[in-house]
Nucleic acid binder design. Structure first.
Lengths: 340, 340
DNA sequence: GTGAAAGCGCTAACAT
DNA sequence: ATGTTAGCGCTTTCAC
């Protein structure tokens, strides 16, 4: 009985077994160059029999292409996804699926991944809800990679070649008009950190909307990891304070749930005394004690389009800068159905 | 004016600039071999100035190590995470953070990633809630990689060197005893597909518990993508059918929310007429119209321990097969607080 | 149509 | 302490 250390078969093993050169094997497997059909089939059959598949690193070293895309949700330490939000999950699912379809391996990079891993071996990156100062963004760009964001980057100077987003200002106006139509007289905004475009765009549009109508603006931007606890605390403060809003438009679903709970704990009736709207939709919002009005913003499509744009740019089939806008719809539910 | 195509600096550029050989650069950068402190500092300084970082592929080709770990949530097509569940997100966050800490790049592999990408360049994989027939599992193992699972693999024959899980049978008993103590006389189980250990373990323990007490078992295993809609439909069927359970222990948070809604739509009071318990906890459960009793099963720790185990095995510091059990606690909330 | 050979950028014996 | 050199496994140009 003799032991043979099993080694991954290399291109040489296949070539040897087939009685051809490694060049022919390479050609046969990749469909490049000219190879006689008979030879080709034999090589393929032998490769399959041996369980051969090319060493990815050797292949990438030789070609200089990574066939990989980095995905990064900005901002929450070592968490690949910092907020328990269907929005991010679906966006990542859409991006991941599309990347695979186009022949790129999606790699999820945690925000804290600086340069520890040398340069991430990716041809490009999609950064979700960027602040604009993500190290990955610059590191990819410096190495000739392309960067696309989901959500507008706030700094113009960034090496971002394109982005995809909803028309958040328009959505904000739609929400505010809806709240007004429902009889709310002082809708406010409770959103995330100001250095993200979703907050910035919403606040800007809201402020203008309020100013035009002589409504005293109520804007709260919450920094840090978005949790329901944070929202509960802030909402209580807001609602029990002076001159409280009678409706709140908020960004995360956990915020919306937190506001709902705060209202509940303060004995404030939703939607009678307080209207609530969320910028994202999820099962949790639909199943809340009072089903919450929300924006269906098609995160899956955002992710998918971001990859499509990115790959187009990488392959030189598209030119940057490019902006893709994904439609969004207001889903009116009990939390703002004051009339009828 | 002359254009110079900017190329990534290679180890040769650094060596040339420093007036040393590439070996010295390699040694200096990796802290291996002997290099004079002065030389070392100079090399480091020049590398930094040139913006040099090693080409990952060349490095991995030369060393034969990938310094990467594949993460896969089993079972939902091209979705990297099929269910909008805090459990998976937190598990992945824990795994990802720990992998990074230990110097491995976490790669999230969608379930449909078969062999399209050749072999995934990973030293090992963590498969979450495996059925046991995941192609990735076998592909990694065949190439000398190590596989660890979160959740017990159902087939003994699998090339799995270890797993980490909660003690689900014990949890089931605890839940059932709690329900009984609250006066529920016919608790049932509504769980996911039977080919996952969490379902199998729960059902087995439950059946025994019920049999011992002469309680007619009520077990429903839902196949396919777990959604609230699915749970609503099934729960309505169950609750309006003959001999309905008066308490339901379920696996996903979306299931729990769905059951709650089904009860609501049927005019069944929770917890008075129906008790509900979920195997996982999340913000959505805490914020539901009736806060839901749930199991805190520490998904983040499960992910973290899975990676620790995996890396230990990869590095040969630990021996398989190994099993790690993570404690879990019952969080009693309104949905089962019938007394008091 | 097929093969020889030169790299891709790096590591690690081994020699100096 | 530092340099020479032989791979790692693959692609690709250029002969044949």
């Amino acid at each position: 009985m003799s032991y043979v250390a099993r080694r991954r078969p290399s291109i040489h093993d296949v070539a040897h077994e087939a009685g051809v050169s490694i060049t022919t094997v390479s050609h046969a497997l990749n469909g490049r160059g000219r190879v006689q059909p008979g030879t080709r089939d034999r090589v393929l059959e032998i490769a399959a029999r041996l369980g051969y598949s090319a060493n990815v690193h050797a292949q990438r070293l030789a070609t200089g292409s990574n066939q990989a895309i980095a995905l990064q949700v900005s901002g929450y330490g070592k968490n690949i996804v910092g907020v328990d939000s269907a929005y991010y999950i679906e966006l990542l699912n859409g991006a991941s699926a599309k990347a695979l379809d186009l022949g790129y391996m999606p790699m999820l990079a945690p925000p804290e991944l600086h340069r520890e891993f040398g340069e991430l071996p990716a041809d490009g990156a999609v950064i979700i809800d960027p602040t604009g100062s993500e190290p990955l963004l610059h590191s990819i760009a410096e190495n000739g990679g392309v960067v696309v964001t989901a959500g507008r980057p706030l700094k113009d100077s960034d090496p971002v070649t394109g982005w995809v987003d909803n028309d958040l200002p328009a959505v904000t106006i739609e929400v505010m008009d809806h709240l007004k139509a429902q009889g709310y007289v002082r809708p406010g905004v409770l959103t995330g950190p100001k250095n993200r475009s979703y907050s910035a765009d919403t606040i800007t549009a809201y402020n203008q909307w309020a100013a035009e109508r002589g409504i005293k603006a109520s804007v709260t931007a919450l920094r840090g990891n978005p949790t329901a606890e944070l929202a509960i605390r802030k909402a209580k403060e807001l609602l029990s304070g002076e001159d409280p809003p009678d409706a709140i438009y908020t960004s995360f679903d956990v915020f919306a749930l937190g506001i709902l709970r705060a209202a509940d704990e303060l004995g404030i009736k939703v939607p009678e005394e307080l209207g609530i709207v969320a910028t994202v939709d999820s099962e949790a919002l639909r199943s809340a004690s009072v089903p919450l009005t929300a924006i269906e913003n098609h995160p899956r499509q955002i992710g998918s389009e971001a990859i499509e744009l990115l790959v187009g740019l990488i392959r030189g089939e598209r030119e940057g800068p490019a902006v893709v806008t994904i439609p969004a719809e207001l889903k009116v539910r009990a939390s703002t159905m004051r009339n009828g």
